[in-house]
Amino acid sequence: MNDDEKDVLRLRLYVAGDAPNSVVAVAHLRSVIEECASGRADVEIVDILRDPERGLRDGVFVTPMLVKFEPLPERRVLGSLGDRRFLLAVLGLNETPGE
């Protein structure tokens, strides 16, 4: 667990400009990272409207899409990331009420 906690989360969120689901997804991700993985996450946000090639290269055809590259295994979550419990599970984080 400690190892896990020390592992840096390398995340990339593909969004479509400021389309509504994309905006919500950014907000949800930001709040989860700040609350449960503060300082341990490397989050890159890619706007596929500006850089479509990036998405294609990563095999991302539908946005908004969150891809967890590290730690392995790679996981992908589609949508506005409203299901917090599922998101924590995918990211391997615990709810830390007393931060």
Binding site: V15, A16, A19, P20, N21, S22, A25, I48, L49, P52, G55, L56, V60, F61, V62, T63, P64, R75, R76, V77, L78, G79, S80, G82, D83, F86, V90
Partner: peptide, 18 residues
């Protein structure tokens, strides 16, 4: 992940398709 993606699509949480 696939199941979640399907549910997200069903909920209309898709902004763009490339």
């Amino acid at each position: 992940d696939a199941q979640q993606a399907l549910e997200a699509v069903a909920r209309g949480e898709v902004d763009a398709v490339t």
